[in-house]
Design a protein around this nucleic acid. Structure first.
Lengths: 148, 148
DNA sequence: CAGTATCCTCGAGGATACTG
DNA sequence: CAGTATCCTCGAGGATACTG
C-alpha cells in the first residue's frame, strides 16, 4: 500500500490521513487556527522550507481546506483562509492538543476559554444522542459492507 | 525546524505531532483500536513493509503508547497492546473519522453505537463545564508565557 | 511579499533473504 | 510467527537564487 492510495480505500480515517498524514500539514493548520494567513508568516513561524510550504499550501487549497483570498491588488497578494471544510478540522486539533496537554507537557501552553460560560472548556466527547461522555469501551463498531 | 525538534517545542499539538505526524503511525493505531495486536496481522492488514512496521511499533512502545505482552512462551511471542496513554488517543481517531465521514466518503464505512443508549453516538465536543457544544468560534485562547 | 526554478543530498523505506 | 540484517533506490525536501 502506498500512502497516496489511502485516498481510495473505504475508510474515513485512512482518507483523512491521506490529507493530514504528513510531518507538517497539521502544524500549518494549527498556525491557521491561530490566525496566521500569509505565506511569509507561516514560513517564519514554522521555520520550514519555502518549497515545502508552497507545496503543502497548494495541496490544501486543492483539497478545499484553504481558499486563497486576494487581500491586495497591486501587486496581487493572496492569503490562505480556512474554508468551512478546514474549520471542521478543529476537533482534530483539539484532540491532539488535549492529549499533548496530558502526556507531553507539564503545564498546558494554551488554555481555551469557553466564551459563553467564561470557564476553561476542556472539551470532551459526548454521545450526540444521550449526551453522555463516550470513550473507547463505550462504543461498538458496525462495519458497512466493503469497509476496509 | 526539524520534525524531530517538535518534541522540544512548548506546544501540545507540536509534541503530539512529533509522535503521530507521519504517514503510517495513525493507521497502525487505527488497526490497534480495531483489535489487531500481532505483527503479521498489522502487516497483512496495512500492506506495509516489515521494516517500517517494526520501526513504528518500536517507537510507539518507547513512547508508551503500546506495551509488548507475552502471549506465548515457546517460542516467545509478543503482541502489542494499547496502554492507557494509547487508549487516550481514541478522541483523535474519532475526530479524524468524523471529518472523513463528512467530507471524504459518501456513506460512513463504520457506525459507532453507544452501548449505553443503543443509538449511533456521533460524538460531539462539548464544554466540560457547561456541557454546551464548542466550536472554533466559541473559544478564546490564552497563551502561557513561552508558548510556541 | 509571495512565491517559483534548479540543483543536490540524504535518509526513509522497499526488496530480499535470513533466523529462532 | 515475528522479527532483523543488508543493500539499494528514489523522492522528499533543503539551499540558493531568482522574479513580479
Amino acid at each position: 500500500m502506498k500512502h497516496r492510495a489511502l485516498d481510495e480505500v473505504y475508510c474515513s480515517v485512512a482518507r483523512t490521513w491521506s490529507v493530514l498524514g504528513d510531518r507538517w500539514t497539521m502544524l500549518i493548520l494549527r498556525e491557521a487556527f491561530r490566525g496566521t494567513s500569509r505565506f511569509d508568516a507561516f514560513q517564519a513561524r514554522l521555520d520550514v522550507g519555502r518549497t515545502l510550504l508552497s507545496d503543502r499550501l497548494a495541496r490544501l487549497v486543492e483539497e478545499g481546506v484553504f481558499e486563497r483570498a486576494l487581500y491586495r491588488s497591486k501587486p496581487e497578494r493572496y492569503e490562505y483562509r480556512l474554508t468551512q471544510k478546514g474549520l471542521d478540522l478543529y476537533p482534530v486539533l483539539l484532540s491532539l492538543m488535549e492529549w499533548g496537554d496530558r502526556y507531553k507537557v507539564d503545564d498546558p501552553p494554551v488554555r481555551l476559554i469557553h466564551k459563553a460560560c467564561g470557564e476553561e472548556a476542556e472539551p470532551q466527547l459526548v454521545c450526540r444522542h444521550c449526551s453522555e461522555p463516550v470513550g473507547y469501551f463505550d462504543l461498538r463498531a458496525e462495519y458497512a459492507p466493503g469497509a476496509w
